[in-house]
Design a binder for these strands. Sequence first.
DNA 1: TGCCAGGCCGGGT
DNA 2: ACCCGGCATGGC
Length: 217
Amino acid sequence: MIEEKLKNIYARLFDSFGPQHWWPGDTPFEVAVGAVLTQNTNWGNVEKAIANLKNANALCPVAMDRMSEPRLAKLIRPSGYYNVKTARLKALISFLIRDYQGNIQRMKKGKPQELRKKLLGINGIGQETADSILLYAVGVPYFVVDAYTKRMFSRHGILSADSEYEDFQELFHSNLARDAGLYNEYHALIVKTGKTFCRPRDPLCGDCPLSEKGLPI
DNA sequence: TGCCAGGCCGGGT
DNA sequence: ACCCGGCATGGC
């Protein structure tokens, strides 16, 4: 039973690592900024960029909207792809100001499905970034699928490695309660486990809580 | 030193 | 529908 497998994996990860207290960010806006900055990027580098924004007293929608692109690019430089990400942050913030007066909380009004479509319409916001914002900044239950999720659950034979984002997301949506708190913790535990054990060609399965009898993670 | 990190876009086939 | 190159820093 697939449902039992998913619940069993969750239980084992939670027992091993405990609550992860995600997303690592003080405000919904910081979460949204972090979601863009962490695209294909080590979280440690993102922290440096966010620290720069805080030091410049610039981690708010109005300040970042007004800021020149070269200045913003310089502040977020440690997170890599800084020119691309400057444009993406600008696009997200323009949208946020235009439709929600710069207040992410207001996204809770209206249908989550419509909001997701709107987010995906912003240049630079793909499925994972949109779902990260939805789940961790807005608090609506969309499961976030990242590289770790695909790697872990395909290596465990639950889905084939070349399955689509939607396939992985549907796996969780249809087999677990549609619960933001659960999705929050589950995804955070997947990342925690992935960072520790689940490199692309380096399983390191020995001490992983999921490794037993030829079940590499 | 090369590999890796909590993707996404645009152009080509 | 797929495939691919580009985007860039910092840690190990």
